[in-house]
């Protein structure tokens, strides 16, 4: 059943990219959830679409951009927006969550304008919205592999600092943890992971892989490290089972992956009912 994925290049890219994202998104998602920032993933994914629409628009008018992978501009927009969110969170100290709807709607607004300038939706754009794992190119694959290496390296090297700052910011600062640096790097990394994951599940569903496996993991895990282990296992099961099932049943891969993740969540909720998290 799964062997077909290793017979064709495009399916192999799909599977390997899926496995990387199935690891990366929940891995980072644990920090997003405990820092109560899970909605930021949604805002940034929409801004990524804006960047992609901009790139496709430029491609229409300038041949220079035709060969460029739209994911690069998408990731660029996402990183830019993440920095703006961080600024806004400091402006509205008492209404930190306000930064999210502001950036989200500004992003969609701008994106819609770009799309209309490019004379409406193209097939390309549609595939970014809902994910299109079978059209993953070698260049996508390389970009996502680089992001996976960079992000995992960062999280492992700064695990102590990220953990302490997420748990108890005041005490962490007293102990000399570099708050500002970690904060900025973290938000940039979130933007990169979103750009990487959207090829697989699409913009509309990108935050699901960062939050649903974590939500399941938190019901079961004892401690922080266990939360990572469970979240990554659930993420990988969702991606692999989702990809294989969608291929054989001819379903949309992105949606199928998310439905598997939701199914896992329902099962864990059932077995841990009555417990408060």
């Amino acid at each position: 059943m799964i062997s077909v994925f290793f017979q064709y290049d495009f399916l192999m890219y799909a599977m390997f990219t899926g496995i990387m994202v199935g690891f990366l998104a929940p891995f980072l998602g644990v920090f997003l959830v405990v820092r109560r920032m899970s909605l930021i993933a949604d805002a940034l994914s929409h801004v990524t679409l804006t960047g992609i629409a901009f790139s496709l628009l430029l491609g229409r008018h300038f041949s220079l951009f035709q060969g460029l992978n739209p994911l690069y501009l998408g990731a660029g927009f996402s990183v830019g927006a993440s920095l703006l969110i961080e600024r806004l969170r400091n402006v509205y100290t008492y209404y930190k969550e306000l930064a999210i709807p502001i950036i989200l709607s500004a992003g969609i607004g701008l994106g819609v304008v770009f799309i209309s300038l490019a004379d409406g939706f193209t097939n390309d754009l549609f595939s970014y919205l809902f994910g299109s794992v079978v059209t993953i190119t070698q260049s996508d694959f390389r970009l996502i592999a680089a992001i996976t290496l960079f992000v995992s390296g960062f999280i492992i090297l700064f695990y102590k600092e990220l953990f302490f700052l997420s748990f108890d910011e005041e005490q962490a600062i007293i102990s000399g943890m570099p708050k500002r640096f970690i904060q900025w790097m973290f938000i940039i990394i979130v933007a990169l992971v979103i750009a990487a994951s959207m090829r697989v599940v699409g913009i509309l569903l990108v935050s699901s892989l960062m939050t649903i496996p974590v939500a399941s993991a938190m019901r079961l895990a004892k401690g922080f490290k266990q939360t990572f282990i469970y979240a990554v296992i659930f993420g990988e099961i969702s991606v692999i089972v989702g990809l294989v099932a969608s291929f054989h049943l001819n379903l949309a891969p992105g949606g199928t992956i998310v439905m598997i993740a939701v199914l896992i969540l329902l099962i864990t909720l059932f077995f841990t009912r009555g417990r408060h998290t």
Binding site: V34, R36, F163, F164, F167, Q171, M177, M218, F224
Partner: peptide, 18 residues
């Protein structure tokens, strides 16, 4: 945040991070 998934061991080890 009392819903934070961290064990007693993990919380105490933070005291050594600095």
């Amino acid at each position: 945040n009392s819903g934070f998934p961290a064990t007693v061991f993990e919380v105490v080890s933070m005291g050594l991070y600095g």
